[in-house]
Simulated assay, not measured.
Amino acid sequence: MTTHTTRPFRIGLQIQPQHADYDRIRRAAAEAEDMGVDILFNWDHFYPLSGDPEGKHFECWTMLGAWAEATSRVEIGALVTCNSYRNPELLADMARTVDHISDGRLILGIGAGWFQKDYDEYGYEFGTAGGRLADLADALPRIEKRFAALNPAPTRKIPMLIGGGGERKTLRLVARHGDIWHGFGDVEVAARKVEVLDGHCADVGRDPAEIERSVGVSGSPADSADQLAELGITLFTVSTGGPDYDLSTLREWLAWRDSRNG
């Protein structure tokens, strides 16, 4: 399989906002920006996803507003916003506001939602996976319509990152609305998802080269980076959690990026 694009390789860091005080999260973000990371992500949950389920945790979008002021170069975003937690028009307005605060560095990451504890504890209806995907399909054009109506308008076309690997529904939504697709899995899984996404792009008349391909990675880039790059994937995101926020794996991936970008 050949690559679809000549995009430069980029490295993201997801700073998981769990099991840490906020000053440590702030320092991790500053250190990663100084190291040269391209994108800083958090996530949109209300409780930790690992470790003590009642451990320290902070909210996503208020944190992105703070990061917009505390950083100066990196793009920022959620990996990913849960569509269920906010009215689509409100989310568009929030994204536009953080876009302006950051001077045009926001990526709007969004997905259908999956973590039932968040829903139950905060009073959202969990429903079914199909229902949550239908809600996402309804929300995406509403977000786009609200972006067009806001005054002032966003500083740029805010990139829409859609997370998920569902082959019949999620990847079709990416083909229609996404600027970035984000998935997980090994090289074999990624190859399958890329093939399916290309097929959906053909079905809806979209040039697949318009969509940046992104994956979450762990371990050394020697294990998978070149093989993933051959699939046309150009954005690789490392995750790190509190309380320590170890950035050693990030450092390896930044070195790989620099060696490939020249």
Rank of each mutant, 00 (worst) to 15 (best):
156 R>W: 14
12 G>D: 02
193 K>I: 03
224 S>A: 11
112 A>I: 00
232 G>R: 06
75 E>L: 10
236 F>Q: 05
25 I>C: 15
80 V>I: 10
14 Q>L: 14
57 H>F: 15
84 S>F: 07
81 T>I: 06
260 R>C: 02
215 V>Q: 13
53 P>S: 06
58 F>N: 05
23 D>N: 12
50 S>D: 13
60 C>Q: 10
80 V>S: 04
187 V>P: 12
198 D>N: 15
167 E>V: 13
28 A>Q: 04
7 R>L: 14
76 I>R: 04
56 K>Y: 13
84 S>P: 01
90 L>V: 11
15 I>S: 00
226 D>M: 07
106 L>I: 01
128 T>A: 05
3 T>I: 08
239 S>Y: 13
243 P>Y: 06
204 V>S: 03
35 M>V: 02
132 R>Q: 00
70 A>Q: 15
234 T>G: 15
43 W>G: 04
15 I>L: 11
96 R>S: 09
20 A>I: 02
83 N>A: 11
130 G>N: 09
240 T>Q: 08
122 Y>A: 01
112 A>K: 01
258 D>E: 02
4 H>V: 03
228 L>F: 14
189 V>G: 10
106 L>A: 00
237 T>E: 14
168 R>M: 12
105 R>I: 02
153 A>S: 14
206 R>Y: 07
202 A>E: 15
47 Y>K: 07
193 K>N: 12
67 W>N: 08
228 L>E: 09
139 A>S: 15
56 K>E: 15
233 I>F: 12
182 H>K: 05
187 V>M: 05
207 D>Y: 07
204 V>D: 10
123 G>P: 02
43 W>K: 06
241 G>A: 13
96 R>T: 14
134 A>N: 05
81 T>D: 06
216 G>E: 14
119 Y>D: 04
81 T>P: 06
145 K>G: 14
230 E>F: 04
5 T>M: 08
180 I>F: 06
224 S>H: 14
42 N>Q: 11
223 D>N: 13
253 W>D: 08
178 G>S: 05
144 E>L: 12
148 A>H: 13
104 G>R: 01
107 I>C: 03
250 L>S: 03
205 G>C: 10
127 G>C: 04
9 F>K: 03
199 G>I: 03
233 I>C: 10
9 F>H: 10
62 T>K: 03
14 Q>V: 05
250 L>V: 00
206 R>M: 07
163 G>H: 07
198 D>L: 08
231 L>V: 01
74 V>H: 00
100 H>A: 08
118 D>C: 03
38 D>G: 08
112 A>S: 12
239 S>I: 05
36 G>S: 09
99 D>A: 01
176 R>F: 12
